[in-house]
């Protein structure tokens, strides 16, 4: 089966001119008469393709260029260099045309009118996308069924919980059946139960409507549970582009061993073993399995003296953090 690229990014760059000011009142005066500027490369020669129907995690540390990239892909910002084609459209040249094909949810910025009910908001958003009244009604019913909004669809948005608001934000961004949904930190500030509900909804949208999902998040749970592909960027460049499966396989060279001993064991850091915690009879070790096998470490601890043991993979969070650090070097 042939694949179709819905997003094509070629050598995309964005630089910002930032005014620098020396400290104090004197510095403020000096900056008026002799301003100094610094050029910040937020996105640096970034190239990437995304296939139709993919769920992609686009992640990186703060200031890596994630949001700037999304803003260029949605037509909010104009690239300094390079080009992006989203759903066959250049966002910098045809912003309005592109808007009919994409949906956006910015977890940190609300798009809904807070004094209106979700229903009235959906009617308004439907009108923005030139939908006819009967089309809007039909779409609201569909979204209501999929996103389970019935309970609060007629309650003013300002009276909704954060989780309910985000569900409504997602529904509003889907009113015009977009081909691609850009989600920038959609689960920020939500409790674990609501986060899980939002993830289920995003998955369902991808399956039921075939919507391509372009997700940025600092929440590893979002990435692990939703995305099959991970793109990590740092300093405006792609530092890793791989499947979630490969990411785990290639970078899971560490195991975490937690043991409860009958008596205190004196163990020192050595090649392949890092002591994370040593408190009375409890030990937490990080093992580099390329240098030391788990069996060797257990032997070292003396199996007769072990009361309880737990061996787990290193959390994905740590793996990603290590990739961030590695790319910095």
């Amino acid at each position: 089966m042939s694949s179709v690229n819905i997003i094509e990014i070629k050598h995309l760059s964005k630089t910002f001119k930032i005014k620098e000011k020396e400290k104090g009142f004197k510095g403020s005066l000096k900056s008026i008469f002799k301003p100094k500027y610094k050029i910040k490369k937020a996105v640096n020669n970034l190239s990437l393709t995304v296939e139709k129907g993919e769920v992609i995690a686009f992640i990186g540390p703060n200031g890596a260029g994630k949001s700037t990239t999304i803003k260029m892909l949605t037509g909010i910002l104009t690239p300094t260099k390079g080009e992006a084609i989203v759903a066959g459209i250049n966002p910098a040249k045809q912003r309005k045309k592109l808007a009919y094909k994409i949906g956006t949810v910015f977890g940190q910025k609300e798009q809904l009118w807070t004094h209106l009910t979700p229903y009235d908001n959906f009617k308004f958003f439907g009108a923005i996308y030139d939908l006819k009244d009967y089309e809007i009604e039909r779409r609201i019913k569909e979204l209501n069924d999929t996103l389970e909004l019935d309970e609060f669809i007629n309650t003013p948005v300002r009276n909704l919980s954060l989780g309910q608001r985000i569900r409504c934000e997602i529904a509003a961004s889907l009113i015009h059946k977009p081909e691609i949904l850009f989600l920038d930190e959609p689960t920020i500030g939500l409790d674990p139960v609501v986060k899980e509900n939002i993830r289920v909804l995003i998955k369902r949208m991808n399956k039921e409507f075939g919507t391509t999902i372009f997700l940025t998040s600092h929440d590893v749970g979002d990435i692990e549970k939703l995305c099959k592909r991970v793109v990590i960027i740092n300093d405006g460049k792609v530092v890793l582009d791989d499947t979630m499966q490969n990411l785990k396989y290639n970078y899971l060279n560490r195991k975490i061993i937690e043991v409860k001993m009958k008596e205190k064991v004196n163990l020192d850091d050595e090649d392949g073993i890092t002591i994370l915690k040593d408190k009375e009879y409890n030990l937490k070790l990080s093992i580099d399995v390329s240098k030391k096998s788990v069996a060797d470490v257990i032997k070292l601890l003396n199996t007769d003296k072990i009361i309880d043991i737990n061996i787990s993979n290193e959390p994905l969070e740590n793996i990603i953090a290590n990739i961030y650090k590695g790319s910095k070097k």
């Binding site: 949605t74 909010i76 309005k96 808007a99 994409i102 798009q111 923005i128 030139d130």
Partner: peptide, 12 residues
């Protein structure tokens, strides 16, 4: 404050 973003992603 960057509030234009919400309007820039709309086709109006």
């Amino acid at each position: 404050s960057g509030k234009l973003d919400a309007y820039l992603v709309q086709p109006k």
